[in-house]
Design a protein around this nucleic acid. Structure first.
Lengths: 241, 241
DNA sequence: AACGACGCGTTCGATAATAGAACACCCGTC
DNA sequence: GACGGGTGTTCTATTATCGAACGCGTCGTT
């Protein structure tokens, strides 16, 4: 079971210990993907049970965690409400564009932003006959060095800011992507699926990308990229205009 | 500008003051819907600036907030990653069903759960020719006493657990919805839109509902409800079976 | 230019919030 | 009935936190 969140913050002590531990409760719960007992959280946190108990009651008051019938802890629905505020203007502008692009292309289209060397999918829209339904759900994360969206995002970063695992082959791909304005990938993030991504650079915002996934086909890749570029341009003019 | 989050927790002092304040930073940011300065957050929190500063640095380390070019604070992308863990098994089971229902009905279908007297939309899928694109985005909240999903959810609660604002008319509607297995609403949550919702009761989980919105039409409402019931049954058997 | 208003980041001591031990309880089950 | 695993509460020493004070840069304005 791979860890979703990196909890190796023993070296870098957070400015606020209590807040950091409380957030780690949320990370542990998201990581577990199944309701946990207080004792399990206690063990994972490495603190006394009464401490974890106090955290959980506080998180409960804010609706960020809930308890199921057996008293186990799970993430609360209001966390989803909080997350809807993440780049909500970007999402508001991008969603109609994603929908239009997805329907015109017949492909799942999604919006990706950079988050500390990782790509996070903020929104995704599926076309009618969806084949990769569960593939890119909002909140999905994967390294920025993998996949078309990652390359499209890397074109917006100076090579010095690239993550350490960036090899020459990837650098070449990013370079080409920067020149022609779009990136592609095959079987990288999702096996047997291809992807096209275009960069979406916005003022005062983390690098982003708009992407589409599709089954290997004889579709003209460049035309897909053109369609995505149109959407990206529309979004950019709406937000930065 | 209506407040999204109720920050009237001056009476109910949270068990962990620090954690509660840190979470309120997130709520304030989600409420503002625009990047804030540290001073603005400080004023809203009612604490000293050095305190808010410490919170923000901690939140920043966890990726829950980011800073734009001007140093202003906004919610971070990793918050979306956290939120994807909310009822992720329910979402995983419901999304394909929502997609199928949305395409077959030609309506936007979405999944709603109860959160402390409010409905929270966890996932929504739009059909090809979407008309209410921006209407029901994940994370949207509205009172449980309004709209078809709310009624479908109220059928799963004992009347004693209903919120205070529940009048007789609503009670009658909920009663009928409980009898026939689905609820409907007109122009309640979204003006000029109708909605149908069916309850989705799951073991050890908050009451939920599957719903569809559509423009006023001569479509047979009962047939829409039947389709939603089929999806709800499929989800229920997958999770509780 | 000088000024004030506004913003950020840091240091530091007193204090209050926290940490963790200990205790009481409930519920299965062996 | 004892046991193990779980929860919730109370209490005190300690420690993390709080908030005042300070320094600094950057705007606009007079």
């Amino acid at each position: 079971m791979p860890k979703i969140f990196d909890d190796s913050n023993t070296s870098t002590d957070a400015p606020s210990q209590t807040l950091s531990r409380g957030i780690r409760v949320l990370e542990i719960l998201a990581d577990a993907r199944v309701p946990l007992t207080i004792d399990a959280i206690t063990a994972e946190l490495g603190v006394h049970r009464s401490v974890a108990y106090r955290f959980i009651r506080t998180l409960e008051q804010h609706g960020l965690v809930e308890r199921d019938a057996g008293g186990r802890i799970r993430l609360g629905a209001r966390l989803a409400a909080l997350a809807s505020g993440v780049a909500h203007d970007l999402q508001a502008e991008a969603l109609p564009e994603l929908t239009a692009a997805a329907n015109e292309l017949g492909m799942t289209c999604f919006l990706v932003v950079l988050d500390h060397e990782e790509c996070v999918t903020l929104a995704s829209v599926e076309p009618r006959h969806a084949v990769a339904t569960v593939a890119q759900r909002p909140g999905t994360r994967h390294p920025v060095t993998v996949g078309a969206p990652g390359k499209a995002i890397l074109t917006q970063l100076s090579p010095g800011a690239w993550p350490v695992g960036t090899d020459a082959a990837l650098a070449a791909e990013v370079h080409m992507a920067a020149l022609r304005g779009w990136a592609e990938s095959q079987n990288e993030v999702i096996p047997s699926l291809h992807a096209v991504a275009v960069p979406l650079a916005l003022r005062g915002r983390r690098p982003a990308a708009i992407a589409a996934v599709y089954l290997p086909t004889d579709r003209e890749v460049a035309s897909v990229a053109e369609r995505l570029i149109a959407s990206a341009t529309a979004v950019r003019s709406a937000l930065d205009g």
